[in-house]
Design a protein around this nucleic acid. Structure first.
Length: 638
DNA sequence: CTAGGGTTAG
């Protein structure tokens, strides 16, 4: 009975015999030569089709029950790229008393798969079968815990690690440490780290990563600094930790230090550094890295290409981004960051064309592609295209719109003046609207002067995002615009009582590799006297062109003169002024600002581009403004 | 066998 069952199962495997022979049959000589031949075949095997043929030959030669060839067979099935875990499972189930090696392999297979929970189930079975553990068991198993963020299971396994005497075995200990670190349990992670008699580089790297994830950059750096030996992973982890925490300058400084020490960067650390450059708008550094990549002949993979294109786009040099994209197009195409890049520069039509081309090439868009393309539509005022794309997301691409896509749509509708429709969409959306959604609607209310709705939304917004200063300012300026000064002042007072502060406005100007930072109202730049004096002259010449300081949105119940003074101190103006006096006539000014550019600075920049015949490329919090000959690429809606 | 990377609405 049992035998018959087995035979039937083996038939299921030999189905592969029906397809043309991919693998030469085994000559049946001695047992030893059969084993060697099978092992050689398994080594050369490159896909499941071949594997199935080898497997069926193993039935014929009887080698299915031989531990070594059977293990090899399983190993192939468990490999993440070309294997097939279902098949592995079937093979495994028919092995009598699998040894530790085989159990480990199965656990590893599932921990690297889409179903890591299966690895935990297997481990449970392994325990039931009283199979001994070895040094490989826990690292594989804990990898599954780490992908599942399964803290409770990790703690249980932790006790097993101790009981079975693996607590001081570095691989097991490091694996445990890593799970705790990725789950944000730095107390436990530290416990393990502290108890290791000689923590190694991997232990340290996991600690750095863990602290970075928790935003504890000082502690992360403390570990980094104290590590007796570091490798490229240590540097990468620390640098990308800084990038994740928004500490881009620290990331670049550390990268420079790394190079001073003669450590050769690889593509992993370079993609992190490129991200830092992108966020800072540090075009020169970014270009340097691009040159470095080319000179070293480093292979540009998808991630690196993505980082490069994003860097060029966010540093204002879209043309260069397009060059990189075109060059990569044949090999590893990176459409999404290119579409996003065109979008933030307001080049909506080009972004749309690229999207169409991408579909024609048969490349599947992902959710980020859609945020990019919807952003492009909203900046370009392409309402119908945007609506159609939004609907096609689910209908044609099987992607459920996420909150950020609704955000794009609120912005798209709001920008075009369809405030009610935007409001309806928020009401209809299947998830709870967040601050970004309300913020987009409120901004549209301000732009289209629907102040009644703006007041309502402003209140909701503060409830949704009470810790953010700019939200109070937004509401307060709605009141100010209506001339309701008492209410405006009241909002400000609440802000003060709650000790919510507003991020100061900051603009950076990049000149010959140096960064010049200006903060609104700050006089700390050595040439500040000259800058303010020059601005007064510029303002005079702009006024002759019809410039009137736009003080209507200012919140405070100040005299007009005082208001004018307040906007004259905006960091954008200081940076532009400094740029005008520090560069040759005709040179493009590149400025990065940390907030949404205000109405007045926008108007001033437009006029300056005409009067002083300068191109100004201004990156604000959300997008780029290219000022040229009195006009802005955003067409005055941002 | 353990550790590191990119693109995400306003």
């Amino acid at each position: 009975m049992q035998k018959k069952g087995r035979f039937c199962k083996s038939l299921a495997f030999s189905k592969a015999l029906m397809v043309p022979m991919l693998v030469a049959p085994i000559n049946q000589f001695t047992l030893e030569s059969k084993v060697t031949q099978t092992l050689t075949l398994l080594e050369k095997c490159s896909n499941m089709e071949e594997l199935k043929q080898i497997h069926s030959q193993m039935f014929k030669t009887g080698l299915v029950h031989d531990t070594i060839p059977a293990s090899r067979l399983l190993a192939f099935c468990c490999s993440p790229d070309s294997g097939c875990l279902d098949y592995a499972r079937k093979v495994f189930d028919r092995i009598q008393d699998p040894n530790t090696f085989i159990w480990n392999m199965m656990i590893r297979g599932f921990s690297n798969s889409k179903y890591p929970e299966e690895a935990l189930i297997l481990y449970h079975q392994m325990l039931c079968c009283s199979v001994p553990h070895n040094a490989y068991t826990f690292p594989f198993l804990l990898k599954a815990c780490s992908s599942l963020s399964a803290l409770e299971e990790t703690q249980q396994i932790h006790t097993h690690v101790i009981k079975r005497g693996f607590a001081s075995e570095v691989y097991s200990a490091n694996s445990l440490l890593h799970v705790y670190a990725t789950c944000g349990c730095m107390k436990f992670a530290y416990l393990i780290y502290d108890q290791l008699s000689t923590p190694d580089i991997v232990s340290g790297n996991s600690m750095i990563d863990g602290y970075s994830e928790c935003g504890e950059m000082d502690l992360a750096y403390e570990i980094f600094k104290q590590m007796p030996a570091k490798n490229i992973v240590s540097w990468t982890t620390m640098i990308s930790g800084y990038v994740g925490a928004g500490m881009y300058m620290e990331a670049l400084n550390l990268f420079n230090e790394m190079q001073t020490l003669g450590i050769e960067p690889d593509k992993v650390v370079l993609s992190s550094v490129l991200s830092a450059c992108a966020n800072l708008g540090a075009l020169d550094q970014g270009r340097w890295i691009h040159c470095y990549i080319d000179n070293r002949g480093l292979q540009i993979d998808q991630i690196l290409g993505c980082a490069l294109i994003d860097m060029y786009a966010k540093c204002g040099d879209v043309e260069e981004a397009v060059k990189v994209f075109e060059k990569m197009k044949k090999g590893i195409p990176v459409w999404t960051p290119m579409i996003v890049g065109l979008a933030i520069h307001g080049r909506a039509r080009e972004a749309l064309n690229l999207f169409v081309e991408m579909l024609e090439e048969g490349i599947k868009p992902n959710p980020i592609t859609f945020t990019g393309i919807l952003t492009a539509c909203s900046y370009g005022g392409l309402v119908n295209e945007g609506k159609n794309l939004f609907h096609s997301m689910q209908r044609h691409h099987g992607l459920k719109p996420r909150i950020e896509h609704y955000g794009c749509m609120v912005h798209l509708l709001g920008r075009a003046g369809f405030l009610q429709e935007a409001k309806e969409l928020i009401k209809k959306m299947p998830m709870k609207p967040n601050a970004a959604i309300w913020g987009a609607l409120l901004h549209a209310c301000q732009i289209h002067r629907n102040l009644e709705l703006g007041k309502q939304i402003g209140k909701i917004l503060i409830e949704a995002d009470p810790g953010k200063g700019s939200r109070y300012i937004q509401l307060s300026s709605v009141y100010a615009r209506r001339g309701e000064w008492d209410e405006a002042a009241e909002v400000r007072k609440v802000m003060k009582t709650l000790r919510v502060s507003k991020l100061p406005g900051c603009s950076a100007l990049y000149l010959n590799g140096n960064v010049h930072e200006f903060i609104t109202g700050d006089w700390n730049h050595p040439q500040m006297e000259v800058i303010y004096h020059t601005w007064d002259q510029i303002a005079e010449s702009l006024k002759q062109e019809g410039y009137e300081p736009a003080i209507g949105d200012l919140l405070l119940d100040l005299q007009d003169e005082e208001k004018e003074m307040a906007i004259n101190q905006h960091s954008e103006k200081l940076a532009i002024t400094f740029g005008l006096i520090s560069t040759e006539p005709g040179m493009t000014l590149r400025i990065v600002n940390n907030q949404r550019v205000c109405q007045d600075c926008h108007t001033a920049a437009k006029l300056i581009s005409k009067v002083y015949a300068r191109k100004i490329v201004l990156r604000d919090r959300n997008r780029f403004h290219h000022f040229e000959n009195g006009k802005c690429s955003c067409e005055d809606y941002w």
